[in-house]
Design a protein around this nucleic acid. Structure first.
Lengths: 209, 209
DNA sequence: TTCACATTGTTATTATAATAACAATAATAA
DNA sequence: TTATTATTGTTATTATAATAACAATGTGAA
C-alpha cells in the first residue's frame, strides 16, 4: 500500500511483472496464477505472492490474478499521473540504442531531448528525439521541466555532466558511464556498470570451469 | 582466498576497485588508504577493508595498500590466465556501443566475434570485431572456443538465441534484452534490464517529489 | 622512552531479501 | 453433504549484505 516501504527488489520486479503482464493481456489472457508469473521470471510463486501482498493486491482463489487490474495497480505505484520527462546526455551508439528502446513504448516516461557536443549530431532527430548542443542542456532541462537524465557519455565527461545536471535541478540519474558519480542526497542515482557485469559473468564461468 | 566463497557483491566491487586502481597507478599513485578507495566508490572504508580481508590481502599500517599488488591479486581472482573469449549477438546500436567499450581495453576478456542477421552488417568489421552471419554462430563459437556471449538482440529473438548459445556450449551469458531467459544451471546468466532501471529511477524520483 | 593516534583487521550486530512453513478457503469430486 | 485439492495470503526462518564496534599495532611526537 504505502509505496515508501516497498523493498527495492520488489520495485524492480513490479516493473518486470508489468511488462510481461502487458504481453499476456495482448495475447488475450485475462487471469494469471502466481506460478505462471513466477515461471515467466524464473522466480518462485511465493516470491510473486509476497510482492503482490506488499502492494495490497488480492487475487481470487483458484482463478488467480486479474491481469488488467494488476497492471493498473502497478502503474499507480510506479508511474506519476502526468508522467516524467527524461533527457539523454550523450547521443552515441549507446544513447541511440536507448532512445530506440523507449521510443514508441506507451509510457509515463518520455525521452524529450538528447544532448551531445558533436556538431554533426546537433540539430538531428533520432527516433523522434531532438539532439541539442550540450551548452543548452541546463536551459532546456529547466524550460521543459525534465526531472530524469540518462548519462551515456564517456567516463572522462561523466563527472562534469552529472554536476551540471544536479545544478539544473535533475532529480534522478541513470548512469551508464563506468565512472562512479557523486550526487547530493535529494538526487536518486542508479548505476549500470556493464564492464563489471561482464567481468562478473567471467568470474562465475571461471569458477565452474 | 577461496574465490568460491566470495560474496557476489564483493566480486562486483573488486571489478570496480581494479578499474579505478589502474587509473591511480597511471597517475603515479603507488599506495592507497581504505578511505581513499572508499571515497572513489562512495562506500565506507569498512566495506573496502572487509572486501580486502575476504580476498586475504593485507595492507601496511599507516601506509595503506600497495596499488600494484592489489591490482594483481584482483586479477588472480577475476581473470583466467589465458583469458576468455566473448561473442556479441546482435550488432545494432547497443552491440556496437559495447564493442566500443571493450575494444582496446587491455583485458583478459576479448570480444572475438559479432553475429547479426542483417546482410548489410555481415562481413563488416566494427572496432576490430568481425561481424558474421547468425547462421554461423554455433560453428564459430565451437571453433574459436568462445565461452561467454552478450545478447543484444530484440526481445522477440532473445529466447531462440539463448537456446542456440547454450547448445553451442556457451558457459556465461550477459543478457541486455528485456526478455527473461531460461538457461540450464551450468550456464551463468546475468541480466541487465535497462527499462526496469529507468522505471526504478522514476519511482524514487516520484517518492521524493 | 612513553603516549597519542592513524590506520588496519576482525568480530558482532543489524538490515534486507529470499525461502520455507503453514493457515485459509473456494471449487470440485465423491 | 463431506472430503480433497488447488491456490492464495501470511508469518517464521534462514541467507546475504552492510554497518558498527572494537582490538591490534606501527609511527611519530613529546
Amino acid at each position: 500500500m504505502n509505496p515508501k516501504s516497498l523493498p527495492d527488489k520488489t520495485i524492480e520486479r513490479l516493473s518486470q511483472y508489468r511488462r510481461n503482464l502487458l504481453i499476456c493481456l495482448s495475447q488475450g489472457k485475462h487471469h494469471i496464477f502466481s506460478h505462471e508469473i513466477a515461471q515467466i521470471h524464473h522466480i518462485t510463486p511465493v516470491q510473486v505472492r509476497r510482492d503482490l501482498m506488499l502492494i495490497g493486491y488480492s487475487g481470487t482463489l483458484r482463478k488467480g490474478y486479474d491481469v488488467r487490474e494488476l497492471i493498473d495497480l502497478i502503474g499507480k505505484i510506479l508511474d506519476t499521473e502526468q508522467g516524467l520527462k527524461v533527457a539523454i546526455v550523450g547521443v552515441g551508439n549507446l544513447g541511440r540504442a536507448l532512445i530506440g528502446y523507449f521510443s514508441g513504448k506507451r509510457s509515463k516516461l518520455n525521452i524529450v531531448a538528447g544532448f551531445d557536443n558533436n556538431p554533426d549530431k546537433i540539430g538531428k532527430i533520432y527516433a523522434g528525439v531532438h539532439c541539442f548542443s550540450s551548452e543548452k542542456m541546463s536551459e532546456i532541462i529547466v524550460q521543459e521541466g525534465i526531472s530524469i537524465a540518462i548519462i551515456t557519455v564517456p567516463a572522462e565527461n561523466a563527472t562534469s555532466v552529472a554536476e551540471q545536471l544536479v545544478m539544473a535541478g535533475i532529480r534522478g540519474i541513470l548512469n551508464f558511464s563506468p565512472k562512479p558519480l557523486n550526487v547530493p542526497p535529494h538526487v536518486y542515482l542508479e548505476e549500470i556498470d556493464m564492464i563489471t557485469s561482464l567481468e562478473k559473468v567471467a568470474f562465475y564461468v571461471k569458477k565452474h570451469l
